[in-house]
């Protein structure tokens, strides 16, 4: 048992790695029909776009699906300096020779993995267009520098995530990119499921605490339109429960996990703290 944990923690692993026998399935609590939709899309190898606010479980869902489908998952977090070579690959010098090194996308295409481009809007548009040929009937990746084309492995699948809530109007996916995807909308889970998630994610969290956290989270999300860029996420609730589990008092735990991270606005944090205090002070 210990050996198995060592294999997982603090040890280099290749990014393309299928789930192994004996691995524990990632915990995911379905909210609706997203599992069925994803399975159908996978059956037809159609690219999928996961839409929804930060911290509502997009990434976890994908880990779960990859495990269910027994496919390796290659995750690339996109940022504004991400170039196409970062995705596709580049030549490296080795002595007097050059060696081509595949980028994560290329490796996923070859190995038949699920490639997950997280927060794709952050990437520069010139790097997002290279996925076009992968997302339609061609399922090909062009490696321009080597002058070759790779036919995708039959199990390869492309998934992107996209958060439409960001107030950066200048950063949006091009419609031509968007319409190549099957889109699944995510939102924060319903109360009972959210409670279940907290109890499952945080060992030792009592149903009562989960109940209060979820109720407080609901109320906090009502303030979204008052200048919050992101509202209180399920992840934040889980963090708050974890901090409580680590011995912090409830109000402080909520403050550091649910209030401080999302706003600098004094009045907003005051209002959020009112909600927290109402639910947790005895």
């Amino acid at each position: 048992m210990k050996a198995a944990t060592n294999r997982l923690r603090g040890v280099e692993r290749d990014i393309v790695q299928a789930p192994q026998a004996g691995d524990k399935a990632p915990y995911y609590e379905p909210q609706g029909n997203e599992v069925a939709v994803f399975e159908a899309a996978y059956k037809k190898r159609l690219p999928v776009m996961l839409k929804g606010p930060t911290g509502c479980g997009k990434t976890r869902f994908l880990e779960f699906m990859a495990f269910q489908l027994n496919r390796p998952l290659v995750t690339v977090s996109c940022h504004e300096d991400l170039t196409s070579s970062d995705l596709v690959g580049r030549f490296l010098l080795e002595g007097a020779e050059t060696v081509w090194q595949d980028g994560p996308l290329t490796r996923a295409v070859k190995a038949g993995a699920i490639c997950y481009l997280d927060e794709i809007v952050e990437a520069r548009t010139d790097s997002t267009v290279i996925i076009h040929s992968l997302t339609d009937h061609r399922r090909k990746l062009t490696v321009e520098k080597r002058g070759i084309e790779i036919e995708a492995h039959e199990d390869f699948m492309l998934v992107i995530s996209y958060n439409p809530g960001y107030q950066t109007v200048l950063k949006d996916l091009k419609p031509s990119t968007k319409q190549r995807f099957i889109a699944i909308n995510f939102d924060f889970p319903p109360e009972d499921i959210e409670r279940k998630i907290i109890v499952n994610e945080v060992p030792g969290a009592s149903p009562e605490i989960a109940h209060q956290l979820v109720a407080a989270g609901r109320k906090a999300r009502l303030l979204k339109d008052h200048g919050l860029e992101e509202s209180t996420s399920t992840r934040a609730l889980v963090y708050a429960a974890s901090m409580m589990g680590a011995g912090l008092d409830a109000v402080t735990a909520c403050q550091v996990a649910m209030v401080n991270p999302i706003t600098d606005d004094i009045e907003l944090s005051e209002a959020l703290m009112e909600i927290v205090q109402a639910h947790f002070s005895v």
């Binding site: 109320k219 906090a220 009502l222 303030l223 008052h226 009045e267 907003l268 005051e270 209002a271 009112e274 909600i275």
Partner: peptide, 15 residues
């Protein structure tokens, strides 16, 4: 001065 806070609290608790 706290008009906004009060408004937010009303919205939170009373919807």
């Amino acid at each position: 001065d706290r008009n906004r806070l009060l408004g937010m609290l009303l919205e939170v608790w009373f919807g």
